[in-house]
């Protein structure tokens, strides 16, 4: 396989430590008790999930492409962002790489959305 020089290449060098073990590869590590609290998924989370499944089905990315983006976000993202925050970041990363839209379009749209209203509900295009 010949490396194609895609934009994702530099992230190959991102590692958790010098042994080569990456942060997400956590089987067998020490950790505390399993937290038992849960929550019901919100509409926002369900939409991220749907985007992930549908764009995958349409061949815009693979689940491994999503995992690669998640892993490359690093451990800090795992600790500080919620599950679906990490997933929308990974979906977006893969869609940008697939050329589905440009960063310019994304940035402009996110800016426009902020002006629609202060809550998720109010920021929908249909109000």
């Amino acid at each position: 396989m010949v490396w194609t020089g895609r934009a994702v290449l530099p992230s190959l060098l991102t590692m958790s430590d010098t042994t080569g073990r990456r942060w997400h590869d956590m089987g067998g590590q020490d950790a505390g008790p399993v937290p038992m609290d849960g929550h019901d998924f919100t509409l926002w989370e369900k939409r991220v999930d749907a985007l992930m499944v549908l764009c995958g089905q349409k061949g815009l990315f693979t689940v491994d492409g999503l995992r690669r983006a998640l892993e490359d976000m690093g451990e800090d993202a795992f600790e500080r962002m919620s599950y679906y925050e990490r997933w929308i970041a990974a979906v977006n990363q893969n869609l940008v790489e697939a050329g589905a839209y440009t960063l310019e379009e994304l940035g402009e749209r996110m800016h426009e959305i902020a002006a629609r209203g202060p809550t998720y509900g109010e920021a929908q295009a249909d109000g």
């Binding site: 926002w44 749209r109 202060p118 295009a125």
Partner: peptide
């Protein structure tokens, strides 16, 4: 417990989801 959704302050990642969905 039900978790707040539509009425919480709009987050950066929620804006990204809306933008990605609209663009797609």
């Amino acid at each position: 417990p039900y978790r707040a959704d539509n009425d919480t302050p709009l987050s950066y990642w929620q804006r990204m989801e809306i933008a990605v969905r609209e663009l797609m």
